[in-house]
Amino acid sequence: MEFLSGHANYFVYIMLMMIGLYGMMAKKNLVKKLVGMNIFQWSLILFFVSIGAKEGGTIPIVEGAHGHGAEIVIQASHYVNPLPHVLMLTAIVVGVGTTGVALAVLLNLYKKYKTLDEDEIIGKL
């Protein structure tokens, strides 16, 4: 039980990942596949953010640190590790970009085939 609670973030991210994977593989509607893909990506982001998190940690900025942690931020051990979060910012951008391109492709597919069902499109190819 301790193992479960101690690794909760891993279980959540893996579950999300599997849900995403399931969506991508099992759903016939292409938009649902895309949603699956997004869930897959976000699960990763969650994972990254969670590995940087720290209970009671504060932002790693010395001047004008907000709220409760202002007096103890000089000690590095009290910081939240900011790097994973910053990285995920980029990953989110990438995710948005991917989704944008994918949606554009889907729009074109819909324009051409008047459907978003995978089997129907394959039948019409």
Binding site: I59, I61, E63, G64, H66, L89, V93
Partner: peptide
Amino acid sequence: HSSPGGGFQ
């Protein structure tokens, strides 16, 4: 540049 937030957000 001095607190959480930034160009992207």
